[in-house]
Design a protein around this nucleic acid. Structure first.
Lengths: 207, 207
DNA sequence: TAGATTGTTAATCGATTAACAATC
DNA sequence: TAGATTGTTAATCGATTAACAATC
């Protein structure tokens, strides 16, 4: 029962297992083996068993792991049992796609507010959200206790949107754009890099 | 000048450096230090210098790395100097966002075709692409020499879309949905997992 | 020269893998 | 029992980091 912060690799893999388990549960799976988890995560099955067994004996030999039980334990380990409010910047195609997806909701993330810099979009409804002007970011972030901001704006607007979020008190910037985003010390910027990941996948196909 | 396949970690990091360098070039940067690259990639600067110096002396002491030169060398190392055609499945908000973005084009990926299962969408224009029916996947994939398929469909349609692509001869499935996707041996499935990455980022904020 | 940053070493730590007894 | 899969060991390999001489 480690109280210390997990090594980067372990935390990354556990997050991945959790995502896969959450989806597997949706398809009606009650148990899952390290072999199956390996196929979906591209992590070696021995590594998976090692990662899990370092926290306790979560599996049943000859059977595998109980999906619900494993989800609960990993959430405990990652301290992510709770729910968190997100602010989404950008109500274009990408912002709308994110707002319409259950992917964040599946993990207890609630998209609490949607902002756009375009005056023509203010007040429009996207799902259950109403598009708010950027001038309301600070107030909304404070009121709703938002610590994560998601950038779904055009690349040229990414830095400015990040600045607004950081000024408002957001601690984690989740950058869906390809633009580079700077932030002050203490603020985490996490950038999606689909093109980078595709280059990586292609490398192993080409060699 | 290694001819062998790179370790997974090295290939993943080089892909990441390439994505960052490509964006840095856009902002007019001519040189970049391992320290700056570290801030954008969250990789230790010593690790970056080690990764690069194992292929040659690419930098200038006291100055840093020339962006153009480094891009060219990493493309060589990853064998991704060429151009590749992609097939994009799904012309909803997500598909439209991907088709409208320069993120893939920046790395020599060309979205060659856009498919949708919804008859109402066939023939619509999305950027310079015309939405094609799924019945045309096989022919288009063959004609355009497509080896990568991108899934931007609703999660419940992801497996079926993947099946169609695999039958048509696609070798790499790039899954933007949260659904789990199975594929036969020899086919690579690479799934985006934004929620997983957010859980990971949050873990380090919470601890 | 002075400041900055690379290339490289050395030491430690985590990741990877095969193998297999334990056990469901 | 027979088959499957976990938990664990042991050995190797790659990642990480601090430190610093070399040099732009």
């Amino acid at each position: 029962m480690a109280e210390e912060r997990l090594p980067l690799g372990v935390a990354a893999r556990l997050s991945r297992y959790l995502q896969i388990l959450t989806q597997a549960k949706k398809t009606g799976k009650h148990t899952i083996s390290s072999k199956t988890l390996s196929e979906y995560s591209n992590v070696n099955p021995t590594q998976i068993r090692r990662d899990l067994s370092s926290f306790g004996k979560f599996g049943k030999r000859g059977v595998g792991y109980n999906v619900d039980y494993l989800i609960a334990r990993i959430k405990e380990i990652l301290h992510t049992s709770g729910s968190h409010n997100l602010a989404l910047m950008g109500s274009g195609n990408l912002g709308t796609a994110i707002a319409s997806s259950k992917i964040f909701a599946d993990h207890g993330f609630n998209i609490a507010a949607l902002f756009d810099a375009d005056p023509a979009k203010i007040g429009q409804e996207v799902g259950s959200l109403r598009v708010q002007p950027v001038t309301e970011v600070a107030e909304t972030v404070r009121e709703r206790g938002i610590i994560v901001g998601v950038l779904a704006v055009p690349p040229h607007a990414a830095q400015e949107a990040a600045n607004v979020l950081v000024s408002a008190g957001v601690k984690i910037i989740f950058n869906y754009t390809e633009a580079l985003v700077d932030a002050p010390p203490g603020i985490t910027v996490h950038s999606m890099s689909p093109a980078g990941e595709l280059l990586y996948a292609l490398y192993f196909y080409l060699t």
